[in-house]
Amino acid sequence: MSVLYALLFYVATVLLIAGLVYKIRQYWITPAPLKIPTTPAPTTRGGVVLRMAREVVLFESLFKSNKWIWLFGYMFHVGLALVLLRHFRYFVDTTSFIWSWVPLISPIGKYAAFALVIGLLGLWARRILVDRIRYISSPSDHLMLALLVGIGSSGMLMTYVVHTDIIAVKVFFMGLMRFSIQPLPTDPLLLLHLGLVALLMIIFPLSKLLHAPGVFFSPSRNQVDNPREKRHIAAWAAKLDK
């Protein structure tokens, strides 16, 4: 089982990184031939950085739009961020100075899991109950929520109900990073949790989870509003000048 999971995580990591590099490179090299920021837009690069920061950290546009989606979406994402930070403890030596914040944040991450799961359930309820959102949902949209709820709830069960040997889990993952396969505890919940996480890593670059890198490349949000001051021209478009 340890070997199987070790291989699974190697494969998942390679696919996640390769997939993201491929997509990000694709976004990077595809030109944006026209200035299309949604205005009013910042007139300086610094302003754009602030706009993007508000979008990514506060979900500003979503807040303007719909308070329920914002609330559940925000709970989920902030919960997820804190839970991920808590999981650093499985991958780093927390006695070293640079990682000394990890034990400090861990207790917060423990409770953030509730926000994560409640947020997901709220979003899922809307997906089922609101006719407009039900209409636009594909099976994959429900499965994505099921996958994330599965990861979140299996993790919470291990934190609060059926504990697993987290020291051994840490030894396993620290081992993986040194290409040495250490024994992984075989509790079903842990195997389920890790299996779902690996699945999430694999589908990340193939799915709508690409919104995470995508938002940074969105021309309606990342362009400076200065078309009169600076000629903006893509290589393929410049060829049409005569």
Partner: peptide, 20 residues
């Protein structure tokens, strides 16, 4: 291949329902 916006917009929608 010519319009980054099109590519990013087609990939990024999570079907949150905000625009509906």
């Amino acid at each position: 291949s010519k319009y980054r916006g099109l590519r990013v917009y087609l990939d990024s929608c999570v079907k949150c329902g905000s625009c509906t």
